[in-house]
Amino acid sequence: MTDAVEPAPQSAPQPTRFQRFARSDLLWSYLRSPVAIVSSIVATVLILAAILAPWLAPYTPFDPATLNLMDGFTPPDSTSFAGHYFLLGADNQGRDMLSTIMYGSRLSLFVGFSATVLAAGLGVGLGLIAGYLGGFVDAAIMRIADIQLSFPAILIALLIFGIARGLIPPAQQQNAAVWVLIIAIGLANWAQFARTVRGATLVERRREYVAAARIMGVRPISILFRHVLPNVLGPVLVIATIGLALAIIEEATLSYLGVGVPPTQPSLGTLIRTGQQFMFSGEWWIVLFPAVALVLLALSVNLLGDWLRDALNPKLRR
């Protein structure tokens, strides 16, 4: 062999981040999946409407000063006696349904997102430790996960919620409700993440690049976070997306049961709970629209998660 240096593959200039994304398999698979396109549009519209509620919503439904009881039970697409127009109608207290849904999904999303981040952080951390250390630590962590998975998540969340209620003084319960809810849902969902990450870690730690790092004397904690973690994050992204949809539904369930956020600060679940009383007296819009919003939100996020799982799985790629 001569000293000729072999050129690096593709002598083209380094592609920018955007170019690399535009050429990626993920975008290609996205553009060929109508389900992914539709559900991402729906999810984006719903999420933007929630985030931008204070600027976009036609009314501020939780400001008592603007409420007019005369507007109560205004049907959808009509103008009340007080002269207000309601696209999706108004509830018993005269609050605009569209605005309450926008504000409500804002809270639902915040709780769902925070709970998923908490569950993912906890699950990934424990899964990494269990998979890498093995032995007793692994057995202990995974048995706790098994026990937890044998209960419905909603039951666990209720339990944690109940304990938190007992610990927090009643005066602060109103303010703490959202945070307790986040912790309850987060703690109820970490096991899925831990299982997946542990499995992936078991595979990765046997890889030769980990052995190479060990020979160099890289510390285990450094191997875990710099070598193993980046390689197990793919499946975590998928579970997190599907987990977000689940967390939103769990929040709605808890709020519907009356143990979630207080009615003064309603989420989608609270809206459905208050709306159901009027279901049989003809004011169907009070329960229907929040329910539709919840279904659309959870469904679109869930379908996105499904698509992501298939797109990231090279075996299913066509």
Partner: peptide
């Protein structure tokens, strides 16, 4: 190592 696909992160 044997497998240059597995030995590089």
């Amino acid at each position: 190592f044997q497998d240059p696909y597995a030995s590089l992160n």
